[in-house]
């Protein structure tokens, strides 16, 4: 049991932290939502009603989409884009998808390689890009969920202000949709750019996200 917990501690710790912060967001989001209702002289709603509201849904999904976009861009971008001196980058001469031997696919697969790495054709192509493709799919689904829930939440506010509701196509062209979207994207992008360049000159002993403490600043693609 202890070994099982240790072997999966990274996933388990972050998944637990996710559930706790989601619960926290639900509680404070509920309080904030009811404050807005009181301002408009409307009756407050229960926590259950808030958890089933489009306001809660749009607040959660707008953050999910940007996180999955961040990972998708990072996974696909780092195939081609380089940063000299960063452990997040490949060496300068390795830009691109690399050859089959380096990637251990097809005839170069080993006995312990996943079956789809040894396969030829579409299965190998799919498996070779599966991490980025799943992140891209989760980003698009999250963004879609944000737009659908956002339409409903936006219309609730508009109806409260005696304004006519908009449909989905109207909402995705609205300032509200793009404000929610871009404020999340900009924060992810500055964090990625910071990580790429700060890891050239700074170190975190023991972290695979960092170079070894004594590695030279110009060493690229070396992980601790």
């Amino acid at each position: 049991m202890r070994r099982c917990l240790r072997d999966n501690s990274l996933t388990l710790t972050f998944a637990t932290a996710f559930l706790l912060t989601l619960a926290g967001q639900a509680l404070v989001g509920h309080a904030e939502f009811n404050n807005g209702l009181l301002v408009d002289s409307l009756a407050p709603v229960s926590l259950t009603a808030y958890l089933m509201s489009s306001d809660f849904a749009v607040d959660v999904t707008e953050n999910w989409q940007s996180e999955y976009l961040q990972f998708f861009l990072y996974i696909f971008g780092t195939v081609w884009l380089l940063q000299r001196g960063s452990p997040e980058s490949k060496e300068m001469d390795r830009a691109g998808p690399e050859d089959d031997e380096t990637q251990r696919v097809g005839a170069h697969a080993r006995d312990d390689s996943p079956r789809w790495a040894a396969a030829e054709g579409i299965r190998q192509k799919l498996f070779s890009r599966s991490l980025g493709l799943v992140m891209a799919a989760l980003f698009l689904l999250s963004w879609l969920a944000q737009s659908v829930a956002g339409t409903a939440a936006y219309n609730e506010l508009r109806l409260r202000n005696l304004q006519p509701p908009v449909d989905w196509s109207g909402y995705i062209l609205s300032a509200d949709f793009w404000s929610r979207t871009l404020q999340n994207w900009q924060s992810e992008l500055i964090a990625v750019a910071s990580m790429a360049i700060l890891s050239v000159y700074l170190r975190q002993r023991g972290s695979p996200e960092s170079k070894p403490v004594g590695a030279p600043h110009h060493a690229t693609g070396v992980e601790g």
């Binding site: 089933m52 749009v58 689904l141 829930a149 409903a152």
Partner: peptide, 30 residues
């Protein structure tokens, strides 16, 4: 690896079901 595989499936399931739930909330509140 059995637990690891179970966590992999659980993670994808929670995220996909969560997204389906949030999309449904938006659709039912139109």
């Amino acid at each position: 690896m059995t637990v690891t595989k179970a966590l992999f499936v659980l993670c994808l399931t929670v995220v996909v079901c969560g997204l389906a739930y949030f999309t449904a909330l938006g659709l039912t509140h139109r």
